[in-house]
Lab assay of single mutants.
Amino acid sequence: TETREFDNEEEARKEAERLRRKGQDVQIRKKGNRWELRRT
């Protein structure tokens, strides 16, 4: 599992969408005042 953190939700969602188009399974969750993007 690979995780990346983003400062805002929009960036996290854009990156998640990009990875999903490549066929990756991605989850986003709020972590304090940041957003965590998890690739499984």
Rank of each mutant, 00 (worst) to 15 (best):
T1M: 13
T1F: 14
T1N: 12
T1W: 15
E2Y: 12
E2Q: 11
E2K: 10
E2F: 14
E2G: 11
E2V: 13
T3V: 13
T3S: 11
T3D: 07
T3A: 11
T3R: 10
T3N: 10
R4S: 08
R4L: 14
R4E: 09
R4M: 14
E5Y: 15
E5G: 06
E5I: 14
E5P: 03
E5F: 15
F6Y: 10
F6G: 01
F6S: 01
D7W: 06
D7M: 07
D7S: 06
D7T: 08
D7G: 05
D7R: 05
N8E: 05
N8R: 05
N8D: 10
N8V: 05
E9L: 14
E9Y: 15
E9V: 10
E9N: 02
E9R: 07
E9W: 15
E10W: 12
E10R: 07
E10P: 05
E10Q: 10
E10N: 08
E11R: 03
E11D: 14
A12L: 03
A12C: 14
A12V: 04
A12W: 00
R13Y: 13
R13H: 10
R13N: 12
K14F: 08
K14W: 09
E15W: 08
E15L: 04
E15V: 07
A16E: 05
A16T: 02
E17T: 07
E17V: 07
R18C: 13
R18K: 10
R18H: 09
R18A: 09
R18T: 05
R18F: 07
R18G: 05
L19R: 04
L19A: 05
L19P: 01
L19Y: 06
R20N: 06
R20L: 06
R21N: 11
R21E: 12
R21S: 13
R21I: 08
K22I: 13
K22T: 12
K22G: 11
G23V: 01
G23M: 02
G23K: 02
Q24W: 15
Q24T: 08
D25T: 12
D25K: 12
D25N: 12
V26S: 05
V26H: 03
V26P: 03
Q27G: 05
Q27I: 14
Q27P: 00
I28D: 01
I28C: 05
R29A: 11
R29K: 11
R29H: 12
K30N: 05
K30V: 05
K30S: 05
K31D: 04
K31E: 06
K31H: 09
K31F: 03
K31T: 09
G32W: 00
G32T: 00
G32L: 00
G32P: 00
G32S: 01
G32M: 00
N33T: 04
N33P: 15
R34N: 11
R34F: 09
W35V: 02
W35Q: 03
W35L: 03
W35S: 02
E36I: 08
E36L: 05
L37V: 15
L37Y: 00
L37R: 03
L37N: 06
R38N: 12
R38Y: 15
R38E: 15
R39F: 15
R39W: 15
R39S: 15
R39H: 15
R39V: 15
T40F: 09
T40Q: 10
T40D: 08
T40S: 11
